[in-house]
Design a protein around this nucleic acid. Structure first.
Lengths: 220, 220
DNA sequence: TGTGTGTTATGACATATGTCATACCCATAA
DNA sequence: TTATGGGTATGACATATGTCATAACACACA
C-alpha cells in the first residue's frame, strides 16, 4: 500500500516544495544505511529525493579515484532536481554519512506534474540559483587564491569560542587538497602566530590577521 | 516610446523563453560597445538580459587583481536569471567582447510575471541545471587536472581552420595564470607535437591528442 | 631621428602543492 | 590478547606554477 508510511513530517517537507497535493500513490519512503550511495556520478538518477532524516555528503569522483567534497545535506534538502531538468546522468555522487531516510518521487511518473507546478519550479529554481552563485565563488577561489587564504576564511567562518575543530582528513577532501598540504598550512599559520594548536583544537590567537589572510569565501 | 525597437529577431528570443506575451512597455533594447561591462561581480544586477547580438565573456574577478574566464556567450543566452531568484548581487562579471545588443527586462517590474510564467520557469530551470552540472565537472577538473588541460580545451573551442590565435597577455590574465606559465605550457604542447608555432598563430597538429588532454570546460 | 609603450620571449630562481613512505595513537572487532 | 582500520603526524622529494629581470620587436608619435 504505497504512501502508507507518509507521516506529518513527510508532508511538511512535501509542502515546502509545493507538493502537498501530489498523488501519493507513486511515491515511496526509502531508507539508506550509513555508507550507502544515494546516487553515483555518471549513473542515471531518475528520482527526486527529499531527505527526511539523517545526513548525506555530496561530492565529485575523479577519474583517479579521489574525490572532492562539495557539501553536507540535512533533512529538507532535495536531490535529483538537476537531473529532472537535464535528463542527464548524475552530476555528482551522494553518500549517506548516517542512516538516512528519503521521500522518493520518480521522475518519469511525476515529470509532467512537477514541471507544471509553479510553486515547485520556483522552489527548485531558487535552490539551483543558490548553487550556481556559490559554485562560481568556489570555482574561482580555488584557482585565484592560495590555499592559505581559503583555509583562513574557513577557520573564521566555522570556529566557535575562538576554537577551530575539524576532522582533518575530511577537511582536506573538502578543499580538494592533500592532507599533507593541509597540515603544512596549519603549521605555517601556527608559526605566524595566527592560530595555536592545543589538545582541544586550534585556538585563534590573532583574529585580525586571520581575516586579513582570509578572503570572502563562505560568506553566505 | 518603449518597445518600439523590438524586431522579429527579438520576438524570436523572447518566445524562446516563453515571453512572447510579455508586456513590451517596460522592456528595452540596449547596446553595449565592445569592452563595456554588462554587469560586475558584487554589484546589483536587477535586470534580465537576453543577448540578441554580439558576444560577451563571463568571468570572475578576484580582489588580488587576478581574473578567471568562465565562458563566452552568444545571442540567445540569458543573464541575470540567477539574481532574479536569489535577489543577491551578481555572482560574476560580464563584458562585451564585440559590440553587443540585449533585450533588457527589469527584475522588479516583471518579477511576478516571470515567476508565475511556467514556460519561463522551466526554461531558466533547464539553463541553471545545465550550469550546475557543468560546474560540478569544472570544479573537480580544476583541482584534478593541470593548466595544460584547460588550455587544450580552450584551444579546441576557439580555433578556426585549425589555427589558434590569441593575445597571450590577455589570455593568461583570463585563465588566472601567469603569462610565463602560459608560454611554458604552449611550449610543452609544441614539444608534444600537439600544436606548432607559426607566424600566423599556433597550428593544431594533433586534434585528437588536443581533445584528449583537454576537458569539457567552457560550455555554459 | 629618437623615445615611449605594448606584446612576445626566455632564463633563473622561489613558492605552492602533490606524492610517497613511514610511524604513532586509539578504538573496536575477532 | 592480537589484529585491524581510521585519524593524526612528519620528512624527503617531485612537480606545478609564480616572480623577476631582461631582451627583442613592432608601432605610434613628436
Amino acid at each position: 500500500m504505497p504512501g502508507k508510511n507518509i507521516t506529518e513530517l513527510h508532508r511538511k517537507y512535501l509542502t515546502n516544495f509545493g507538493l502537498e497535493h501530489i498523488d501519493p500513490e507513486g511515491i515511496l519512503i526509502r531508507d539508506y544505511k550509513k555508507g550507502e550511495y544515494l546516487c553515483e556520478q555518471g549513473s542515471p538518477l531518475d528520482e527526486l529525493l527529499i531527505i527526511s532524516g539523517g545526513r548525506v555528503k555530496v561530492f565529485s569522483m575523479a577519474s583517479n579515484g579521489k574525490s572532492l567534497l562539495f557539501c553536507y545535506n540535512d533533512p529538507g534538502t532535495i536531490l535529483g532536481e538537476v537531473e529532472l531538468m537535464t535528463y542527464a546522468f548524475a552530476s555528482s555522487s551522494v553518500c549517506a554519512v548516517t542512516d538516512v531516510q528519503c521521500i522518493v518521487i520518480p521522475h518519469e511518473r511525476y515529470r509532467d506534474y512537477l514541471t507544471s507546478n509553479i510553486r515547485f519550479m520556483n522552489r527548485i529554481s531558487l535552490t539551483m540559483a543558490e548553487i550556481v552563485a556559490q559554485n562560481s565563488i568556489n570555482n574561482s577561489s580555488n584557482i585565484l587564491y592560495p590555499f592559505e587564504s581559503r583555509l583562513c576564511a574557513y577557520i573564521s567562518m566555522t570556529s566557535e569560542n575562538n576554537c577551530f575543530t575539524a576532522k582533518l582528513t575530511e577537511l582536506a577532501e573538502f578543499f580538494g587538497t592533500s592532507y599533507r598540504h593541509l597540515l603544512r598550512t596549519l603549521e605555517t599559520l601556527c608559526t605566524k602566530g595566527v592560530i595555536e594548536k592545543t589538545e582541544k583544537g586550534y585556538l585563534i590567537k590573532d583574529d585580525l590577521k586571520l581575516r586579513t589572510i582570509g578572503i570572502k569565501y563562505y560568506s553566505r
